Amino acid sequence: MRFTVMIPTFNNGRLIRCAIRSVLRQTHRDFELLVVADGAPASTALIVEKFAEEDPRVKLLAYEKGERHGERWRHDALQKATGEAVCYLSDDDFWFPDHLAVMSHLLTKADFAHTRHTSIVDALHVRGYAGDIRDRDIRQLMRKTKTNIFGLSFAGHRMNAYGKLPEGWSPAPADIWTDLHMWRKWLAAPGIKFGASSMTTGLNLPAMRRREMSAGKRLTELRMWYEIFSDPYLVAGLRKTMPKTQDLVTLAAVATKANQLRARKPTLKEALHQVARALR
């Protein structure tokens, strides 16, 4: 399956480097990366263009500042997309290397799918959000209340299904999150097949919890977590310690589990079995 990966960006500057790098390290290699710049400054364009010089799959689509979060530019960008399916990534989040591989599995059978929204809450804790879009009650909650069980970085869809929606990306009302506004269009469309995985395939660093941090401190923090979770044992440790509930997990517990796995060194066959089980 060929993917179009979309990273919308406005004013997060150098934070986008980790997001782009996390896309370029994907084990699923058949993709294009569209960075949709909603009035982003020239410094952001220079960063993206540098990546594009090194990897032709990276493309910058620069627009003037649009209404709200530039949602219409996302729709415009999808008209230029070459992928069978689309995955989204916020410019201040990052994926683990198997995110597209997991999404490819899900979107083979579904029109719209998501993995588990997982956030670094603070320096000590991580939280995985509970819920599955295949659950009718969850879908009703998302349609009728201000409930969103996954953000932009954990969702994707097939392009042929997007083309059948009455309306694609468009500016959200002021009281509705941009992503939830779009998800509701999928939830309202007839005949959509939904898919989901409880696997954590990336990390979100909620901007709302970091409003008091300077741009420099946010960049330092993001780089730190990106480097820490470049260790596959820590990724495996995180996945094994995440409960089905939304209870906080300490990063110390994640590190402990990672060290146990490192000492045990599971065979390749066991590792593949763990991934297959998570995909069911």
Rank of each mutant, 00 (worst) to 15 (best):
M1S: 14
R2E: 10
T4N: 04
T4R: 06
V5R: 10
V5L: 12
V5C: 15
M6D: 01
M6H: 02
P8Q: 07
P8Y: 06
P8H: 06
P8S: 06
T9W: 04
T9F: 04
F10L: 10
F10H: 14
N11Q: 12
G13E: 02
R14H: 11
R14K: 14
L15F: 02
L15K: 00
L15C: 04
I16E: 03
R17C: 13
R17A: 14
R17S: 13
C18Y: 12
C18V: 10
A19P: 03
A19Q: 04
I20K: 06
R21Y: 05
R21T: 08
R21Q: 15
R21M: 13
S22I: 07
S22G: 11
V23W: 12
V23P: 12
L24T: 05
L24Y: 08
L24G: 05
R25Q: 14
R25E: 13
Q26R: 10
Q26D: 11
Q26C: 11
Q26T: 09
Q26M: 10
T27L: 12
H28T: 04
H28N: 07
D30E: 15
E32T: 15
E32H: 10
L33V: 04
L34P: 09
L34K: 08
L34R: 07
V36Y: 02
A37P: 02
A37F: 01
A37D: 02
A37I: 00
D38I: 01
D38V: 00
D38Y: 02
D38S: 00
G39F: 00
A40Y: 00
A40T: 00
A40N: 00
P41A: 08
P41W: 07
A42V: 07
A42M: 04
S43W: 03
T44P: 01
T44K: 00
A45D: 13
A45V: 01
A45W: 11
L46G: 09
L46K: 14
I47A: 07
I47Q: 07
I47C: 08
I47K: 04
E49D: 14
K50D: 15
F51I: 10
A52Q: 08
A52M: 06
A52L: 04
E53C: 13
E53Y: 04
E54Y: 05
E54D: 14
D55R: 10
D55H: 13
D55S: 12
P56Y: 06
P56S: 15
P56C: 08
R57C: 09
R57Q: 12
R57N: 09
R57L: 10
K59P: 07
K59T: 15
L60F: 08
L60C: 07
L61E: 11
A62M: 06
A62S: 15
K65F: 00
K65V: 00
G66M: 02
E67V: 09
R68L: 11
H69M: 12
H69I: 06
G70T: 02
G70Y: 03
G70C: 04
E71H: 01
E71D: 10
E71F: 03
R72L: 14
W73R: 02
W73N: 01
